[in-house]
Design a protein around this nucleic acid. Structure first.
Length: 484
DNA sequence: TGAAATGTTGGGGCG
DNA sequence: ACGCCCCAACATTTC
């Protein structure tokens, strides 16, 4: 069999600005594109329900893009280390290309695979594609990883600007004989019965083409008022590019370049800083591999979380009695997405009002978000909980009524997702229980009193400070090196 | 990328 | 005219 190049797609389901693809083509040999559904490698967290739904569409779109260029996508299932090694041997690949990922379990697996391939005489090449600034490229003056966002992002902005995106190739040389491929339908990534994904399908179009279209629409539209409108969940004021970025249908370089081309403004800087948080999250998870499972600040290991399954269930279903919280949770279930401002509110409610471990919320988001990303999800949850790097102080407790009044003043967002409350006027919609007997009967009363819950949360935090000897719980750093 | 409690100030009503 | 009280509006601090 003549030599081939194997191109392993992972979270980079695009043809444009794909360094692994470009490199695979440069050998001038036929390229075999493959995607591996790996639900078996220990430590790798399998995709959640909403992500699986998206993945189906994204793989379908990628296959179509490849076919329009004379190629196709080979689908395989199993532990990636074994599947790629065997496929490389079976199809006579002399090189394997992929784009790097950064969480601990994936880094370990990829390192093992690279060693195995190298041992068999196959050139294994990984590439930078998913980040603007890779974890090793950016360090403090002391050569340490950053633990605080602002200096991290300042260092990034002072570094060389990201390179221009690579063009999509026009033609991809195909092998004479294609290796066997699974049928996508056989993977059953989309729900059948019950089909809970109708709301997702109504809202989203997975794939590189839709991603590019959405990016262009955003930079030509909502980006102009992003600084203010991004905080108003009733508006389409955010980019909604997160799932395209999570699956790599868009590269951060493409997004960066599109936004940068708009000229300097406060809105543009705010938006680029959101890309910065994405970079920071991946920086953290690279240097702190189990960020999604363990408190970044070890003193939080002693935090007195409560086990309250009924409350957790009410939170998941959007039945807490706090309209802004419930609207967010129902938006999440219906569409696979939640507005960022509301993510902070519901996360604060779970961890502080209900005193439930952030990992329970992280798991729920993982299962329900179409943009679920290990690094972003863990960083966000730990940030809200106060256990993370550069986290907000624990005593910063969101008041769901005030947040609702401030960011959904007309109540339109609540009305959209809570039909029970659709008839209420703006002045009570964020606290319907104050209507007494006139409150809607089919909407639950608050499952906790926020004022009391806040006191309870502050007391829990104080107990933590005392238990750990009162050290380093409010300070910026204990001076210790990061675990890695 | 807070909220609540506490402190300060200044204007108006009133004796 | 003046001091006093009240309280809204704003500032500061504390959690």
């Amino acid at each position: 069999m003549s030599p081939h190049a194997l191109l392993w797609f992972r979270r980079d389901l695009r043809l444009a600005d794909n360094p692994a693809l470009t490199a695979a083509l440069q050998a001038g040999r036929p390229v075999i594109p493959v995607y591996v559904l790996d639900e078996e490698t220990p430590g790798q967290r399998p995709a959640g329900g909403a992500s699986r739904w998206w993945l189906h569409g994204s793989l379908q779109a990628l296959d179509e893009m490849l076919r329009s260029r004379g190629s196709r996508l080979v689908l395989r299932r199993g532990p990636a280390e074994r599947v790629i090694t065997e496929l490389a041997a079976a199809c006579g690949a002399t090189s394997v290309h992929w784009n790097r990922l950064y969480d601990g379990a994936t880094c370990d697996r990829d390192a093992r695979l690279m060693a195995a391939l190298t041992e068999r005489g196959v050139a294994a090449c990984d590439h930078k594609a998913s980040l603007l600034f890779e974890p090793r490229e950016v360090t403090t003056k002391a050569g340490e990883p950053f633990k605080v966002f602002t200096p991290f992002w300042r260092a990034c902005r002072n570094a060389a600007a990201p390179a221009r995106p690579l063009p999509a190739p026009g033609h991809i040389p195909a092998p004479e004989i294609w290796p066997e491929s699974d049928a996508l339908a056989g993977w059953r990534l989309r729900p059948a019965s019950p089909d809970w994904a109708g709301g997702l399908a109504a809202m989203w179009t997975p794939g590189e083409f839709a991603g590019a279209k959405n990016l262009a629409a955003f930079v030509g539209g909502a980006l102009g008022r992003y600084r203010v409108h991004r905080d108003l969940p009733a508006m389409a004021g955010t980019s909604r590019l997160s799932p395209h970025l999570a699956f790599g249908e868009l590269s951060p370089r493409q997004v960066w370049q599109a936004a940068a081309a708009q000229g300097v403004s406060e809105s543009r800087e705010k938006f680029l800083a959101e890309l910065g948080w994405r970079e920071f999250a991946h920086h953290l998870i690279f240097h702190f591999g189990d960020l999604s499972a363990r408190n970044f600040r070890p003193e939080f290991d002693a935090f007195p979380w409560t086990q309250d399954d009924p409350a957790l269930g009410a939170w998941k279903r959007g039945r807490t009695g706090y309209p802004i919280v419930d609207a967010g949770m129902r938006e999440l279930c219906s569409t696979g997405w939640m507005h960022n401002r509301v993510r902070m509110i519901v996360a604060s409610f779970l961890t502080k009002d209900l005193l439930i471990d952030w990992r329970a919320g992280e798991r729920w988001f993982w299962d329900t978000l179409v943009d679920a990303d290990l690094a972003n999800n863990a960083t966000g949850w730990q940030w809200v909980a106060g256990s993370g790097a550069d986290a907000q102080p624990y005593f910063r407790v969101f008041n769901p009524v005030l947040q609702g009044k401030k960011f959904d003043p007309a109540g339109d967002y609540v009305r959209r997702w809570l039909p029970e409350l659709a008839a209420l006027p703006a002045d009570v919609i964020h606290h319907p229980w104050t209507l007494g007997t006139a409150a809607p009967k089919d909407y639950p009363p608050p499952i906790v009193d926020h004022g009391r819950a806040r006191d309870r949360a502050l007391a829990a935090f104080r107990s933590l400070k005392t238990a750990s000897g009162g050290k380093s719980s409010g300070g910026k750093s204990s001076g210790k090196a990061l675990p890695s």
